[in-house]
Amino acid sequence: MLDDLLARFGKRDRLALARLLTLVARGEHLDAIRLALAAADSAASRPAPPVVALTGNAGVGKSTLVGKLAEYLRGQGQSVAVLACDPQSPLTGGALLGDRVRMPSRPDDLGLYIRSLAAVSGNQAVAEHVELMIRLLAGFGFDVILLETVGAGQGDTAVRELADVVVLLVQPETGDELQWEKAGLLEVADVVVVHKADLAGAERMESQVRELLTLPGCREITVLRVSSTKQQGLAELWAAILACPRHDARVGDARALLRRAQQVLAERFADRVQRVGPVVDRWKRHELDEAQAADELLQLLIR
C-alpha cells in the first residue's frame, strides 16, 4: 500500500500527498518515506523551496497573514503549500483546527495546498514530524512552503531549525507589548511584522521594536508594518523574506534526522551510535552534502 502511495505521489497525485501527510502526522512509515524522498531528491536537481515560518501570540493574525501572503504569492505565479498548526488537547488528543477560516478558499486553484495540523499543546510550536511534511511538500513541487505555528514562546528553537526564515508577528496595543521580547523571540526572528497596521498605535509599536533591536547583541532584523485588512505591506514583506540570509532548511532537517537516528540506534543497535557523529562532522565540513549525509545515516539505520 505504501509503495502504491509513493508511486502515486511520484506522479503528483494530490490525494496520495494528502494521505502521506496523514501517515507522517501519525508517525507511521517515517523511515520508509524519508528514504523514498531522499532517493527522489538525489535524482532531482531542483533547489529546495523556501520554508517560511510565521509565529506570534494568539490573536495576532497569523492565519490571516499566512492567507494573504499565500494569495500574494499565487498572484506572482508561485505555488504555495501551507501547514497550519493548532493546539491539540493533551488530555483527549482532540483538536479544533480552524485556521482555514481565515485563509483563502480557492477550490479551483491547484497551486495552493492547505493542511491543518494538530500540535500537542505545552511546548510544541508545530506538529510532530513537520520537517518530513515539509520535505513531502517540497518533493511534490511547491515553490514556497508557509508554516504557521501554534503560537510564540513555545518550541521556538524547533521552528528556527525547520524554517529558512522566521517571521514574528506583533500587533499594536496589546498591553503585553514586551512579552515576546522576554521569551527571546527576537533571537529566532529574521523579520518582525507589526501586523494590523491599520489599527492605532502601529507606529509606536514599530519604534518600540526598533529600539529593542538596538540593544547590544541583536542581529540585523527587518521590521515592517503590514495590514492584512487593507492589503498593505505584503510585497514588502515578501521582499524582506527573500532578502534574509537563507538558513538552509536542510540544517534543521539533518538535525532532526540526526536526533531520530540516534534515538533509533540507541534503542536497537547500541553499537552503531558512535558511527553517527563522524557522518555529521563530514557534512559540517562540507565533505558531504545534505542528501549524502542523510543517505549515509539511513544506511546506518536500515543495514
Binding site: 480552524g98 477560516v101 481565515r102 483563502p104 485588512t229 487593507k230
Partner: peptide, 9 residues
Amino acid sequence: YGRCDAAVV
C-alpha cells in the same frame, strides 16, 4: 469599502 471575506470564529 473592501469585503469582509471571513467571519472570524
